[in-house]
Amino acid sequence: MFPLLIAMALAGCGGDLSTLDPAGPAARDVARLWWAMLAGSTVLFALVMALFTLVMLKPEAGCRWTPRSWIVGGGIVMPVPILAVLLIFAFAQGERHLPWRGEHNPVRIEARAHMWFWEFHYLDYPEAEPTIGVMHMPAWYEVDVIATSNNVIHGFWVPRLGGKVDAIPGHETVVRLFADDPGTFGGICVEYCGRGHASMTFRAEAHTPADFYAAIGVSGEGRK
């Protein structure tokens, strides 16, 4: 089964909604984390299964280690350092992709979830018309998506660019996206929201800055 899976994986990682076909740094970091964790998990799984096979077929071999060695070694000494390293690494990675204001002034777009479509408002450009089903964003710039809803909970997700965030009535949640290059990326609603849930898809279109202004219908004069 494993060779089949590996073959499938190498062949079919791509896709408009694939987290394994990243188009931005947040998604790329997570994809790398995934491959590292997959490798580590495979090793740990193989170890446990090897030990199980060993003790079932040749218990005399396992008898050499005292019960305390087994339990303390396998139950504490092995997992704790691995988990600690993983946690620190993951925390640092999470911090890097938080929607903080830093030197960058992110472009802010509000994603309003309706039943059952997405409506995007370009908060930094009040004269721009809201768009439905398509989110225009500039490539090469931080974009903060502010997700809201006035009906039920929805989930905003563009897998190739970054993580998801829930759109919760009464709250505003933020996720930071960054597209490495212009392109079109698939987006979906990812929290069950009723009958139209499966059809609540959208596109995120990353443009060069000039094309971005054109797409949302504002003049590009005097802007970065």
């Binding site: 079932m56 008898c63 087994w70 070694g73």
Partner: peptide, 9 residues
């Protein structure tokens, strides 16, 4: 690992 130890012994 307690189970593995039990089997081993």
């Amino acid at each position: 690992f307690a189970w593995l130890a039990t089997l081993a012994h």
